[in-house]
Amino acid sequence: MTVTVVQFGGSNCDRDAVGALSHLGIDAERVWHEDGLPEDTTGIVLPGGFSYGDYLRAGAMAARSPVMAEVRAAAEDGVPVLGVCNGAQIGCETGLTDGAFTTNASARFQCENAYLRVENADTPWTRAYDEGDVLSVPIAHGEGRFEIGEERYERLDSEGRVLFRYCDADGNVTDDANPNGSRGNVAGVLGERDTVAVLMPHPERATLPDLGSTDGQGVLRGFEAVSNA
């Protein structure tokens, strides 16, 4: 298994992703987007950061890099793809998942720990948890508010494609626990295949014990879950 972490101009969490995956014993390498996906790619991470300075819209320019056509084709073939923060924005802009991420309701950059409730534990990315588990995972974004039309939101929810919702420490999904104003407190969603996921919080920053939380490890172990399926 080799997970390719795609680096764009302005990515700044690519090394974090490689380090977190390596800590879990998962082979990972950074690849510059212009070089395309290596032939031995068995998983893909679209990392956080500020690709191209978030010009136009966050993730909009990176989504038009030729490598994203390769990522889409790989996803259609069942290769697991995880977009984190800016990578989630890129994933939505590319059409890997429904919805979009836009400016936080506060209009401020939010950098803090957030609580997430596991909404669907029957996916590769959440198999390590039980439905209703509460995780502590950092967020760091200015455009993390998930938006989607009402009909599409209801379909996303009814199909079990909401992975995580922002909640309080006791698992209550409330307005006060929503750090960015996301519709339905949504923090992460699945694509048409459950092997594709995007989320705003940073599981790679909640993987190493020295960082204070290891709650994000199960998300990254999704790559193992797919390869062992």
Rank of each mutant, 00 (worst) to 15 (best):
T97S: 10
A62N: 04
A169F: 10
S22N: 13
Y55S: 12
D215P: 04
R64P: 11
N12T: 07
W32Y: 10
Q110K: 14
N113T: 13
A121G: 05
A206P: 00
T207R: 02
A206L: 04
G19W: 14
R205L: 09
V3K: 03
A229D: 14
R117I: 06
C92V: 11
D157Q: 14
V84W: 01
A69R: 12
V3R: 02
R205F: 03
S22A: 14
H202N: 09
A229K: 13
M1V: 10
G191T: 09
S65N: 12
L190S: 08
G25D: 05
A74C: 11
R117M: 09
D176F: 10
D35M: 13
G87E: 00
A100W: 12
G36R: 02
C13F: 06
R152E: 15
S22D: 11
S182W: 00
F223R: 05
G91R: 00
H141C: 05
G184T: 03
W32C: 05
I44W: 00
N86Q: 08
H33E: 06
L135C: 09
Y115L: 12
D27H: 15
V134Q: 03
E147P: 09
G222L: 04
A187H: 00
T42L: 10
G48V: 00
T207N: 06
A169C: 12
I44A: 02
T97L: 08
R183N: 12
